[in-house]
Design a protein around this nucleic acid. Structure first.
Length: 726
DNA sequence: AAGGGCTTCGATAGCT
């Protein structure tokens, strides 16, 4: 083997030999030096199943091999399922080293935790929430157990970036550093990630106060890809996937191992159930199963295990629950039904396909409505197809994907961390809290006046109170929040019904889905009749039955990035979507998708949409701007504030009963149209701004600000309009 | 008329 390999502990080397690896992969080789040196943070970025985990653990375990006191490695993961996977993968290596490894999350038994608690050593695998709980409940133990900690490693780091949980995560790491103040250097942080929008920004996201260098290790590019986009004609207003597409999907998947991404839980359920029906009609055993966040853990694990069995044909119809690195092996192909929402998630999904030596295969099935008198310009432009093509081109040609939005304020999480810090220490001074959370912490964009405002407000709401000596302690309401076990999570959890069949929980439904007794529903890929709804116990009882449609699942908006709309416009403007490979143009649309594209392009040209921005049809003025959803939302609010009846769909703004010239004049005079509006002003005319878990404890003016910056962008809109007619 | 995801948590009572 290599020089790097020789630096590994001989027991680690023996483990590598036993895996029958001929040599270490490139990233594994590269990681050895920086990890062993312990003098820097490290980012390891490579595709799924590229050996990232080993790239970290081989050298890290070498380093802590002979340390028998205290945990040497803290592994943090966004998913319990991932912790269980990693535990299984680490067991062999750790046995070889006679090293402890302990999984620690909400589903791990008390007995197991107590054992680890008495004798902390080796590797601990945790969720951020579990670490939060330990810090609050037993800081003394954490201080002792982690006093010889050598590394903190975060798996699927990209899943945290820009989110409330990400803020909590970095805050937790800072709080660990603060507990270990006698160390010369802070504890090295290692991020493992598949997709990082802009990798050079990652070090700053991993550690805010930046008193540690950071090494970046990047895996080689993607492997070969095969790809086809298939188009379908739907009846106008069709709600469910059309029969032809379903038949194709069945024919593609039957007998193999595939992942079908269908965007919504409702679609996922519908497709899984109807593909199962096809199996039944064809007298073959069912091989189609749904996988999403509302299904019980048992059902999900059953499917994950089944996917690992290579000889058993299995198709998972899934949402993003199968995007992250849960161990399911590689599949023959990925099928995307209806357009993806982002390049980043398409990339993530593609990482699931491509067995050893074979290219990854992507098929997109994109239905569009047959044109009728109710068709909107969005239908006529075939925007679903166009969006699919644009995302593919950005992925393959531009090799671009959305960077995570890391500029949000997340005041809700700040409130949470203030409470957590006070609870952890029993009390703290305002200056200390600011120093740790804001100045040196993950809330660096919060100013001192804003921080003071938040503390004052928290006092008013009895979350905290000030002692005579100036120290802050929990107030009555603060005690109530912190002592609820729901406190450790920083994100919102909607109220749900349990769905029960024969005393077994098969999943949960949001209470907003409003299921009623006697209703027939599709759930967990099967058809049921609702026998009873127990409002008290929040339980829905179901029995197997026939017929039915999926219940309503309610989701949040997923805004489309400006770059995707730019690409969509560019494709129609040039009239060519094909990809240039080695000087020849490669077409990846089937004949009906090509037809759909042609129809869209004809409509684009008919209305001269490379110059013209307005279509006047069916009593509406449609603004076809090719702007990001954020800009569209901003404009929609502004037109709304002027009294127009306005809505938007697929990025096209629709205004009812208005003269097109009036609107055109406004678009041509951005400064008049935009007036004195700011993000905050727009946000202040919205009724309810509570989005995140503890927003109700955030002062209103701060909330107006953060809500405004999240959903609107007046500056970008102004800039966009200034470029519109030049 | 029409579109959309996911994650997680402790202690104890009361039972086998």
């Amino acid at each position: 083997m290599s020089i790097g390999f020789n630096q590994l502990d001989h027991r680690v080397q023996r483990w590598v030999h036993r895996q029958k690896w001929k040599n270490l992969r490139d990233i594994q080789e590269q990681a050895i030096g920086p990890i062993l040196k312990e003098g820097s943070d490290v980012v390891i970025s490579a595709s799924t199943a590229s050996g990232k985990t080993e790239a970290f653990f081989l050298p890290a375990c070498t380093k802590i091999a002979d340390q028998d006191e205290g945990f040497g490695i803290l592994y943090l993961s966004p998913l319990k399922a991932l912790i269980n996977d990693q535990y299984r993968r680490l067991e062999g290596l750790c046995e070889m080293l006679d090293m402890n490894v302990v999984p620690w999350h909400g589903d791990i038994s008390q007995a197991r935790r107590n054992k680890a608690k008495k004798n902390p050593s080796g590797i601990i695998l945790m969720t951020p929430e579990s670490l939060e709980a330990r810090l609050i409940k037993d800081m003394g133990w954490v201080r002792r157990a982690f006093s010889f900690l050598r590394y903190i490693v975060i798996d699927e780091f990209h899943a945290f970036v820009g989110t409330e949980r990400g803020q909590q995560l970095t805050s937790l790491m800072n709080r660990l550093d603060a507990l270990a103040q006698d160390r010369d250097l802070p504890i090295p942080r290692v991020a493992l990630s598949a997709t990082l929008g802009n990798i050079n920004d990652t070090p700053a996201l991993l550690r805010q106060n930046y008193n540690m260098p950071c090494e970046i290790i990047q895996g080689k590019g993607e492997s070969e890809l095969q790809l086809v986009v298939k188009g379908y004609y739907d009846l106008p207003g069709a709600q469910r996937l059309n029969e032809n597409a379903l038949q194709d999907l069945y024919a593609i998947c039957r007998g193999g191992s595939h992942l079908v991404f269908a965007n919504s839980r409702g679609n996922t359920e519908d497709i899984a159930a109807r593909a199962s029906d096809l199996c039944e009609n064809n007298f073959v055993p069912n091989e189609f199963f749904p996988h999403h966040g509302s299904l019980s853990r048992e059902l999900r694990e059953f499917l994950e295990k089944r996917l690992q069995k290579e000889d058993l044909p299995t198709t998972a119809v899934c949402t993003m629950t199968l995007e992250l690195g849960i161990d399911i092996g590689k599949v023959d192909s990925v099928i995307q039904v209806t357009p993806p929402h982002s390049v980043a998630s398409l990339r993530q999904r593609m990482g699931r396909s491509g067995r050893r030596g074979t290219p990854s295969v992507l098929r997109m099935l994109i239905p569009e409505d047959k044109i009728s008198h109710i068709s909107s310009p969005g239908d006529k432009l075939r925007l679903r197809l166009l969006q699919s093509i644009a995302i593919i081109r950005l992925y393959i040609v531009e090799k671009w994907y959305e960077p995570a939005e890391s500029s949000h304020f997340h005041f809700s999480t700040l409130v949470h961390q203030i409470l957590a810090l006070i609870a952890q220490w029993g009390g703290a001074r305002a200056a200390q809290i600011f120093d740790q959370l804001c100045d040196k912490g993950s809330f660096g964009n919060v100013t001192i006046p804003d921080f003071k405002k938040i503390l004052t407000h928290m006092g008013k709401k009895e979350l905290i109170q000030q002692m005579h000596n100036g120290e802050l302690v929990l107030g009555i309401e603060g005690e109530r929040l912190v002592n609820n076990y729901n406190f450790y999570t920083v994100f919102n959890t909607p109220e749900e019904y349990r769905v029960v069949n024969n005393e077994k929980t098969i999943g949960s439904l949001p209470t907003e889905s409003l299921v009623t007794k006697g209703q027939h529903i599709i759930f967990a890929g099967r058809r049921w009749k609702v026998n009873d709804v127990d409002e008290e116990k929040k339980t829905v009882y179901v029995n197997l039955s026939k017929g039915g449609v999926p219940p309503k699942f309610i989701g949040d908006p997923i805004p489309l990035h400006q770059k995707i709309r730019d690409e969509m416009y560019k494709i129609f403007n040039t009239g060519d979507y094909r990809i240039d490979i080695g000087g020849s143009k490669v077409d990846f649309l089937d004949s009906s998708a090509r037809n759909l594209f042609k129809e869209g392009l004809e409509y684009f040209n008919k209305h001269d949409l490379s110059r013209n921005k307005i279509i006047n049809e069916n009593g509406y003025v449609y603004l076809v701007l090719w702007a990001s959803d954020k800009i569209v939302k901003t404009l929609q609010m502004i037109f709304g504030s002027k009294g127009y009846e306005v809505s938007s769909f697929h990025g096209i703004i629709e205004i009812k009963n208005v003269d097109r010239h009036k609107i055109e004049n406004l678009l041509k005079n951005p400064s008049i149209l935009m007036g004195e509006w700011t993000n905050a002003k727009l946000s202040s005319i919205i009724g309810v701004r509570h989005i995140e878990k503890y927003d109700e404890y955030v002062p209103d003016d701060l909330l107006i600000n953060s809500y405004g910056n999240r959903y609107f962008d007046v500056k970008a809109t102004k800039h966009f309009l200034e470029q519109l007619y030049v």
